[in-house]
Design a protein around this nucleic acid. Structure first.
Lengths: 143, 143
DNA sequence: GTACTAATTGAAGTGCGGTTTAAGTCAAGC
DNA sequence: GCTTGACTTAAACCGCACTTCAATTAGTAC
């Protein structure tokens, strides 16, 4: 604690490989940490940072987008225009993704509840609102 | 007219590259279509199939998972055990993903509304509901 | 027949997100 | 001193999901 955590320790506590952490550092997602005789020393703060990175990645951010995401918070600077645009665009993407996932979930759920779903039903269920159009409230309970 | 659609036509109408369609065929996501003098001929049905594939991919299914997903509906066969297990597991993944995306969306939204969010606030917001992080299928049997 | 376009193939290439490898450094314990 | 184990680096490698390439063929227009 007083000495800081090694890369192995922080990797274990974040459930991630040391190689990934080095890769994130190389990619500019993590700041270069202090070193003690050549070895990286991290604080607990970095664990939180790693978790955000994991969530961002799981939400579909690329490494580059995640870097922009993180740098949107840099210091006390209010989000720059570039960051704002990215955020707005990403929100739209996330909304679309959410509806698609919701539909996919519905199909998965109903398909192994009723056991009689055919692929044509699936197409209708998933594609009900079209891949682009924001159709409201057409949640079909197939089961 | 009843000659069916060319790969170029179906690619345009699905908003996807012909090369991707051939790749899907190779990967077993699409059945081998009829041929007229060597060239693939598709029906409109395949457009729907392609859309499902796109949604499945967008929801995070790999090609292999998508194949299992599609084959879960094969013929009139009720979903097999393998498919059911995949579906159950995928639903859990999707649920986790949904909550994470919702949080991410919230953070994105609030961050460019108030313009004063710091990264520590972000960590608290995103990580609020606990670090139940998704699996990456990292268990590989050494066979 | 000639030209042009869109299709065909297998093989090789690409970009992403890491992982693995090879060779070496450091601190501790025997 | 020697060994052990966790770390360091650059560079090579990997799997995925496609894309691109090169050479060829089929159909249509003139």
């Amino acid at each position: 604690m007083t000495t800081g955590m090694s890369i192995g320790a922080i990797a274990r506590s974040a459930g991630i490989a040391p190689s990934a952490i080095r890769y994130y550092e190389r990619s500019g997602l993590l700041p270069k940490p202090a070193r003690r005789s050549g070895q990286r020393r991290y604080t607990a703060e970095t664990v939180g940072r790693l978790r955000i990175i994991q969530v961002a990645r799981a939400a579909g951010f690329t490494i580059t987008q995640t870097r922009t995401f993180l740098s949107g918070f840099s210091g006390a600077t209010p989000p720059a225009a570039r960051w704002r645009a990215l955020a707005a665009q990403k929100i739209e993407e996330l909304d679309l993704l959410m509806t698609q996932i919701a539909r996919m979930r519905l199909v998965l759920k109903s398909s192994f509840q009723c056991g009689c779903l055919r692929i044509e039903d699936c197409e209708r269920a998933i594609l009900a609102a079209g891949p682009r159009e924001g159709d409201a409230g057409r949640d079909e309970p197939c089961a």
